[in-house]
Design a binder for these strands. Structure first.
Length: 871
RNA sequence: GCGGGCGUGAUGGAAUGGUAGACAUACCGGACUUAAAAUCCGGAGGCGCAAGCCGUGCGGGUUCGAGUCCCGCCGCCCGUACCA
């Protein structure tokens, strides 16, 4: 009778091996069923998986297994985002070749992932540093080059002096390199770019057609692309005040309606006008130099005082030749946005207002908020950025800002200056082209050559791949490819003369921008097989961390557009559904100034207070905040330890329990133990019941009360779990399974002496239970499945068939409220009419007491929900 | 600054505008045990002997009915920033 303890250490590897041998999870594009592509963001092979991976892949695996059970033809692959700096750092520190380091890491992480029992198609595995992969990436690069989507230009770049490489704007955070944390310098270099701005509008527009993306991510992308519609306005510079060659100044504005509130113009320190003026003005030259210095330091940006230098140049107002405004050089104007020049309207822009107050410039309000008196409305310390009616604005008076915008655009558009309109409409984007050149070794070589006679020449396609040389030294900082004795020497495919190889490699974000497409034909000679890619893509459900909300997702969205333009697939968006999961966090512990790992901390309860001591020394421990697991805080729990002691199913179950998947989950030892206890409890339930189920035929309908209750519980749980998984509400699905187990544990206690009908209901309920947990705890489910007398894989079986009739009750108990407060229950037949329920309510004792013989003021009946009597 | 999200028991969290606190963790009591662990049964928002009253950050509002919707505050978290 007593079931033996479930031993995951024996069971889990056994089934993993069996699944492997059966090739259970290998996907075929010609298999029956509608395709479904589930993908979790592939890992960087750092060497060990962490709890964040466990959570991410557990979620994806639930979706994959669930969809498979629903009859979908599921693709669920895994690979490695394997190029990047850490491998080179390891090479420099430990004198190990990046390739060796990377592939060894991959081997150990693959073993760790396999111990999780994920339903992955490992036959499609690749690493982005495999030559077979970066070969195809080079093919894509050449196609992009042909299509004008890749190009070279000299540009000011963000130079990371520690990593000795260029960074994209996206990779600079607060003026520091995203990886090294070093202050970024500006340098002029010739770089390779992808023309992501070509699709700026489309990338923005298409966000509205991604309903299965989190609003948050769509918004972040929208802000990043930063579209603004405005006017390029040409201002004449007053004769005699401006240097030769500067007759006018063009300004970009999104608020031409506030033109009559303008009180100054300002140009960036790098603006050509500023440069011209500085030649004869040492004080201005000093000011500009100071701006540049401040511009590169992050602290200066933080404190950000608005500083300006009055140049003496005067600009003529576009609508009034007699009205001139001073032109400043200002530290807050950016050369690389718009035209590098602005007009300031202090009343309606806080930054302009701060500037105007500092330099005592006029502040004229031109937008009147509703219900304000135009004769007294005054701007004090805060600019007014809201809507209203234009005033103090001559011919614009009385218009809305939108009407004002149009009126100014029209009038200035018709005003000709030197044969060109004084203003034209212009759409500006914050988004810049994507600089992909990296001065690193461990990346995909850019397949071009520099020929002395032909210039920049793409490598011939038949000469691909351009392989990374193995024999490189990492004893000095910088790019080892530059120092390689022979690798750079090549032959120009155009003229046959000597040429020098490009030594830049591609940003590793390029590698991850199309891997999801490669998974559809991972061994193809071409980057994709379009027909197959189009059959699988887009990815139906993509799951990963929100930290990739902008960069990786935006680059991938660009890539499918560029790949479509070059004929590699026919796709609008890469990811139909996106889910961003929360982090795994853990308490921190401190012994004095030292961080202490959780494994070295023991707890006890003293007077209701949790106290901690250090196991190794007995020292008292201070319990700190709950933070993201990190090496520096030492609050890391190693999945391998957890899987080794509790098993993969326990780790998976705990990761799915309790916390909503988009929020952070706190890893606790108690929580893990609780999950393990549940594993054992479920195992006992199935094991104890299995011998008594017999082969009782499953009746079409049941009459016994217990049997019916069992069936209802099973079908209702199945229905609820189905809905929860569809919405990725894993924590709720877990709660429902708990409920079912609680119910069954009570109902099946005396199964040996039950009638056949009850035994049959129990058999069905246990089958349901096992199928419902199978996506989350596949090993336990399979072991239970076997105990229930099955010889096949539960993972290959279909999802429980739900009998809708069992979801309904014959009678329902409604809460009975008096004046909105619950005063009793009312049990009525499920099909009772509204009138019947009303009558039943009026007949009830509580209502009669409350009415005291009178009539109710109102009677609210929501069938199936509630009854409310207002007296 | 701007944008977004969130505030519910001791804790993680449930709750299409309809019985607030499902489920779990921790806790308390009981059974089993020489004992402990495991397991099983039971308890539990607060106040109150009870009837009952009060309870979802605070203050208003809409509604028969508000954790949920609206307005105004407070607090925390995340993203982002001289973007004209």
């Amino acid at each position: 009778m007593t079931t033996e303890r479930y031993n995951p250490r024996a069971v889990e590897p056994r089934w993993q091996k069996a699944w492997d041998e059966a090739k259970l999870y290998e996907a075929r594009s010609d298999a029956p069923g509608e395709t479904y592509y589930v993908l979790e963001m592939f890992p960087y092979p750092s060497g060990r998986i962490h709890m964040g991976h466990v959570r991410n892949y557990a979620m994806g695996d639930v979706v994959a297994r669930y969809k498979r059970a629903r009859g979908f033809n599921v693709l669920h692959p895994m690979g490695w985002d394997a190029f990047g700096m850490p491998a080179e750092n390891a090479a420099m520190q430990n004198r190990v070749h990046p390739a060796k380091w990377t592939y060894e890491n991959i081997a150990s992480m693959r073993a760790q992932l396999k111990s999780m029992g994920l339903s992955l198609d490992w036959s499609r595995e690749f690493a982005t540093c495999d030559v077979e992969y970066y070969h195809r990436q080079q093919m894509l690069f050449l196609d992009f080059l042909d299509a004008g989507l890749a190009y070279r230009k000299k540009s000011k770049v963000n130079w990371d002096p520690v990593d000795m490489t260029v960074l994209a704007n996206e990779q600079v955070e607060d003026g520091r390199g995203w990886r090294s944390g070093a202050l970024v310098e500006q340098r002029e270099l010739v770089q390779w770019f992808f023309k992501i701005t070509e699709y700026a509008d489309d990338l923005l527009e298409a966000l509205d057609h991604l309903p299965n993306w989190p609003d948050k991510v769509r918004l972040m992308q929208k802000n990043w692309i930063g579209k603004s519609e405005g006017l390029m306005v040409r201002w004449q510079l007053a004769g005699g005040t401006a240097p030769a060659g500067h007759d006018e100044l063009t300004v970009f504005t999104t608020r031409p309606d506030t033109l009559f509130g303008a009180s100054f113009l300002a140009v960036a320190a790098d603006h050509p006008l500023a440069a011209s003026l500085a030649r004869n003005d040492p004080a201005l030259a000093d000011f500009i130099a100071e701006c540049r210095r401040a511009g590169t330091s992050a602290e200066a940006l933080e404190t950000a005082e608005k500083n300006g230098y009055r140049t003496g140049v005067e600009a003529v107002h576009p609508f009034d030749p007699a009205w001139t405004l001073p032109v400043y050089v200002a530290n807050f104007v950016l050369m690389d946005y718009g035209t590098g020049a602005i007009f300031g309207c202090p009343a309606h822009d806080q930054r302009d207002l701060d500037f105007a107050r500092k330099y005592e410039l006029p502040v004229t309000p031109v937008v009147l908020p509703s219900r304000e008196d135009p004769t007294v409305f005054t701007i004090y310390a805060e600019a007014y950025g809201g809507d209203g009616v234009l005033f103090n604005s001559r011919f614009l008076d009385g218009m809305s800002p939108q009407e004002g915008f149009e009126a100014v655009a029209t009038r200035l558009g018709e005003t000709m200056l030197d044969g060109a309109p004084q203003a034209v409409r212009k759409v500006n984007f914050r988004l810049r082209d994507w600089g992909v050149s990296r001065q690193r070794y461990w990346g995909c070589p850019i397949p071009v050559l520099h020929c002395e006679t032909c210039g920049v020449v793409p490598e011939a396609r038949e000469n691909l791949p351009v392989r990374l040389p193995d024999d490189v030294e990492f004893d000095k900082p910088g790019n080892p490819l530059d120092r390689h004795p022979t690798w750079r020497q090549a032959t120009c495919p155009r003229c046959g003369g000597g040429a020098r190889r490009e030594t830049d490699t591609m940003d590793t974000f390029v590698d991850s921008s199309w891997y999801f497409a490669r998974f559809t034909s991972p061994r193809a000679e071409t980057p994709t097989v379009p027909a197959i890619a189009d059959a699988w893509l887009p990815v139906d459900q993509y799951i990963g961390g929100v930290e990739h909300a902008i960069l990786h997702l935006l680059y991938s969205r660009f890539f499918v557009r560029a790949m479509k333009a070059t004929g590699h697939l026919d796709l609008v968006e890469p990811f139909r559904g996106l889910f961003t999961q929360g982090m795994v966090v853990h308490e921190t512990y401190k012994d004095g100034r030292d961080w202490v790992p959780p494994s070295d901390v023991a707890f006890k309860e003293v007077d209701g207070q949790r106290q901690a001591t250090r196991v190794s020394t007995g020292a008292p421990i201070e319990i700190g905040g709950i933070e993201k697991m990190s090496k520096s805080k030492r609050n890391v729990v190693d999945p391998e330890d957890i899987i080794g002691s509790y098993g993969a199913d326990t780790a998976r179950w705990f990761m799915l329990s309790d916390s909503p998947p988009d929020r952070d989950v706190i890893w606790t030892e108690a929580g893990a133990e609780g999950a393990f206890r549940f594993v054992q409890r479920l195992w006992r339930l199935v094991g104890d019941a299995a011998p008594h189920l017999g082969d009782a035929a499953r009746p079409a309908s049941v009459t016994g009360e217990t049997a019916l209750a069992i069936r209802k519980a099973a079908h209702r749980t199945a229905s609820g779990v189905t809905a929860d998984i569809e919405r990725l509400g894993f924590n709720k699905a877990v709660a429902r399974v708990h409920e079912l187990v609680n119910t069954l544990a009570g109902a099946l206690g005396d199964l040996a002496r039950s009638d056949d009908e009850t035994k049959a209901a129990a058999a069905e309920a246990l089958e349901f239970l096992v199928k419902l947990i199978a996506p989350m705890m596949p090993h336990l489910a399979q072991e239970c499945w076997t105990v229930l007398g099955n010889e096949d894989f539960v993972a290959a079986r279909s999802w429980p068939q739900i009998d809708e009739a069992l979801l309904r009750d014959d009678s329902v108990t409604l809460p009975l409220q008096i004046n909105g407060k619950k005063r009793g229950d009312l049990t009525v037949p499920a099909d009772a009419s509204k009138a019947d329920i009303e009558q039943a309510a009026l007949d009830s004792q509580v209502v009669r007491d409350a009415l005291n013989g009178g009539q109710p003021k109102r009677l609210v009946v929501v069938p199936g929900r509630i009854v409310n009597v207002v007296v």
